[in-house]
Each structure stands twice: as C-alpha cells, then as structure tokens.
Amino acid sequence: MKNTNNLNALKNNSQLTLSISTTSSTSSTHTIQLVDSNKPLLFDDQVSQAEILWALKSVQNVFSYKNSDDIGKLFRTMFQDSKIAQKFSIQHSKISYVIAHGLWPYFRDLLIKDIKNCEGFVLCFDEQTNNQNNKQLDLYFRYWNHAQANVVVDGILGAFRTDGIDISKLLMLSRDNPNVNKTVDKMINDAMKKKVNAELLNIGTCNLHVIHNGFRAGMDSVTKIKLCLTG
C-alpha cells in the first residue's frame, strides 16, 4: 500500500516518504518534497530558497557563520512587507548544517564529475592539525576545465566594455604556458573577427618566448656583425 501511495505521489509531484533503518532496532522516516519546475513554489519552499541563497552568498563572500545570527532580524526590519523575510530564520548552527549537509553533497558530485571529465589533473595534499586538534588530510585537485573558458572570455570582454577599451587595438594574448588557454585564445580571436573584422597576431602558442628568443637571436647577430666590422 505504501509503495502505491509513493507511486501516486511521484505522478502528482508531491511528496515521497521513505523509511530508513539506522540500526537493527531503530528507524527514521524522511519525507522528500518533489518540486515541479512548472509549478510555483509553496511558501515554505520560498523561505527555504531564501535561506539557501543566503548560505550560498555567505560561502561566496567568505562570511563567518556568526554573521548570520542577526541577519533574520535585519531582513525583517528592512523588508517589513515581505512574508518571506518575516519567516526567514537562520543562525550559525543552521547555516553550518545547510552548507555541510545540504549544499556540499550536490557541489561535491559536480566537482567529481568535472574531475572525471578533465584531461588530467595535479593532486596536492596537505596533512595538518585542525582546530579540534585532530589530524586531517586535505586533498586539492588542480586542473583545467575547458568549460570555464567562457567565464574567462566573458571576463576579458566585459572588462573591455566596462572600461571603454577598443578591442580592435588588441594585438595578441600572452600567457605563461603554451599548452593551456588555447580555447580562450580561439574564442577571443573569433570575437574580434565578429566585432571588428580583425584577428590576433599568430606567432605561436607562446608568443612571449617566441619574441624573446627572436630578439635574442637578433642581438646575437648584431653582436657578431659588430665584431666583424671592428675586427
């Protein structure tokens, strides 16, 4: 009977109730709210959404959890005509749980998927003692995600537009590694073709080294000619 009710709940995009056994003698019941993107959020879900957005903002701006202790009172004072603000309630303990147990698993899955799809990565590790005086091992993955090229290009072109810099005056892009950011180079070049009917100078994948080596070779030749003339 319970399975039939769950099936109907799935069809109606309402609720799904699961009973999970935690030990041999105890069990807990969890209700998952299924949200249909074509339907407006319920009021309680709108409040939860506001609290989640604040949690994300706190992470993005590296806010202390303690900064959230009075934020609900502040929002209620600022937005007295908002029912969501009146119900908004989040303190340092709640935001900690929202981030660690609500948001982190989702972003962790995205990160793992991203790492699996990358061409290669560098693993950095750091063993240290945390604030609880416990040993912990931190792992850091460094890799290039080609999907992020759009972010880099948008940032460059956006800065040009904001500061009124004429992109037609851009001669070339210089970078410290010839094997990265090739996608950015191509996208900037395509943007120049489209906007000003011009292209970047193409003198190799690492123009800084090419120019440096060319200048050095030229100076060597000049020195040899000078020695011949004075000799």
Rank of each mutant, 00 (worst) to 15 (best):
I20C: 11
F75E: 00
A147P: 00
Q60D: 07
K11I: 12
I99H: 03
Q49D: 08
Q46P: 02
N213Y: 07
N134H: 13
N6A: 09
D126E: 09
T23N: 07
V196L: 05
A191D: 04
D166L: 02
Q91Y: 09
G214D: 04
N5A: 12
Q148D: 15
D44T: 13
K194E: 14
D126L: 10
A191R: 03
W54I: 12
Q15H: 11
Y106C: 13
D36T: 03
Q91F: 07
L200G: 02
K87M: 08
G155A: 02
N12F: 02
N38V: 02
C124N: 13
V184T: 05
T29A: 05
L171Y: 11
K39N: 09
T77H: 12
R216N: 11
H209N: 15
K94A: 08
V153G: 01
G155H: 04
P40C: 06
D109C: 07
S27H: 08
V152Q: 03
Q148T: 08
C118D: 02
K116Q: 14
E199Y: 04
G72Y: 01
D45C: 09
H212L: 11
D36W: 04
V62G: 00
N145L: 05
T4D: 10
C118V: 10
D190L: 10
F121T: 05
K116P: 00
R108D: 12
D185Q: 11
T129S: 07
G204Q: 06
S24R: 12
A100Q: 13
K169S: 07
G231V: 02
V62Y: 07
Q132M: 10
E51K: 06
E127W: 04
T4W: 07
A9Q: 09
N202L: 03
D45K: 11
Q128A: 10
I71V: 15
A159V: 06
N181D: 13
F75K: 00
T77Y: 08
A217N: 14
I203D: 01
L53F: 11
S14T: 15
